[in-house]
Amino acid sequence: MQTRPGPPTRRLAVLTLALISLAAAGCVERRYTVRTDPPGALVSINGEEAGISPVSVNYEYYGDRRVTIQAEGYETINTSVPVRAPWWDNALTGFVSENLIPFTLRDERDFRFTMAPAVTPPTGDLIGRGLQLRQQSLQPAPQRPGSFWRFFAF
Rank of each mutant, 00 (worst) to 15 (best):
L105T: 06
D107I: 07
A91G: 04
T123K: 10
R106F: 12
V96W: 12
T104Q: 13
P117I: 09
P102G: 10
L100E: 01
D89N: 14
L92V: 12
A71N: 01
V67D: 09
F95I: 07
A71M: 14
A71T: 00
W88P: 06
E72A: 09
T123I: 14
A85P: 08
D110P: 00
T104E: 12
V81W: 13
A71V: 00
G73Q: 07
F95M: 05
W87S: 11
T79N: 12
F113W: 10
F103P: 07
Q70E: 08
I77K: 03
V81C: 08
V83I: 15
P86C: 06
L92A: 13
F95H: 06
D89Y: 12
T120Y: 13
I77N: 00
A118T: 11
F113C: 06
E108W: 09
A116R: 15
P121W: 08
D107K: 08
I101D: 01
E98S: 13
P121V: 10
W88D: 12
G73M: 06
T76C: 01
N99P: 03
P121N: 09
R65W: 11
E108C: 02
V81T: 15
E75I: 07
P122I: 07
T120F: 13
F111E: 06
P86E: 04
M115Y: 02
A71D: 00
I69L: 09
W88T: 05
D107C: 06
E98M: 03
A118G: 08
D107E: 10
R106T: 14
F113P: 00
W88K: 04
I69C: 01
I77M: 07
S97A: 14
A118Q: 15
Y74E: 04
E75L: 07
R109W: 12
V81S: 08
P102S: 07
Y74G: 01
A118N: 07
G73N: 06
P82K: 06
D125R: 09
N90M: 02
M115K: 02
D89P: 00
R65P: 03
A91H: 05
G94H: 09
V119D: 13
R66V: 12
R106G: 02
E98P: 00
V67T: 12
R65T: 04
R84C: 00
N99E: 01
V119K: 15
G124I: 11
R66L: 11
I77F: 02
D125L: 12
I101F: 10
V119Y: 15
R106D: 09
Y74S: 03
V81Y: 10
E108F: 13
W88G: 02
N90Y: 03
V67R: 03
E98T: 11
D64Q: 07
V96I: 15
W88Y: 15
V81H: 11
D125V: 06
I101G: 01
P117C: 02
T68K: 12
R106S: 12
M115S: 03
N90G: 15
A116F: 05
P121Q: 11
E98Q: 14
A91R: 10
V119P: 00
R84K: 10
T114R: 13
V119C: 08
E75H: 04
T68S: 11
E108M: 09
V96R: 05
P82E: 10
Q70D: 02
A91Y: 09
F113K: 01
D110H: 13
D110T: 13
L92Y: 12
P82N: 09
T79E: 09
N99M: 02
P117F: 05
E98N: 14
N90A: 05
T104W: 06
E75C: 01
T79S: 14
V67E: 11
P82L: 04
